[in-house]
Amino acid sequence: MSSITLETHADRSKMEVSDEVAIEIRGMNKWYGAFHVLRDIDLTVYQGERIVIAGPSGSGKSTLIRCINRLEEHQEGQIIVDGTELTSDLKNVDKVRSEVGMVFQHFNLFPHLTILENCTLAPIWVRKTPRKEAEEIAMHFLEKVKIPEQAHKYPGMLSGGQQQRVAIARSLCMRPRIMLFDEPTSALDPEMIKEVLETMVELAEEGMTMLCVTHEMGFAKEVANRVIFMDAGQIVEQNEPEEFFNNPQNERTKLFLSQIL
């Protein structure tokens, strides 16, 4: 499955993990109706960590990271993001959401706005950044993802890979401390997967805290400092990538890896 090899080798020396906690999940449970989708999740993410979450389809990976910015609500346990606990208090939810960026499988760009407007919308309306400044920030990040020349086009005119890079830039414009990726490359052609992964590698090299749900095991080996394997709503195994790939412990992990690699 993972046929993409990254050309540039990620420079791991720059990726430092501090001992400051970014996300703390304790005894978290979630149900969809009567369906117990996440079971007793305990997870601590430190600032600067790059975590790859893998697992079979339907194992609850998306649900887990969507709980972190409260796109989904959990019913039991605690989720604390950057010191703010996610409760039904909308103020906390808004605070967490403005600090956590999210990139979706299907990009979810706003098709009625230009690329630049996509990027400036949230800074202007949520952060109250003056328009000019917001545009400068947006251009800065569009340059970073290497598509400043598309700024005045609409999302519908861009290729999938370009759209996903815009989506990353759009999240970065809010200056998030944590980035969540939900299968950012699974809707893309191989050629485009590479350009998106390279953007993500760069982001990791700058020390961004990242949680990625992905099947790109090349990316996991290159960038991640921890791989989490989920099955049936539980964290089944987590380890450093080297150990995880070469020496998996759990039977399900072994089965999964034998299928995917």
Binding site: L71, F104, V126
Partner: peptide, 10 residues
């Protein structure tokens, strides 16, 4: 579209 708007904090 709703999710993207939510995720951006709108």
């Amino acid at each position: 579209q709703y999710e993207a708007a939510d995720a951006l904090g709108l």
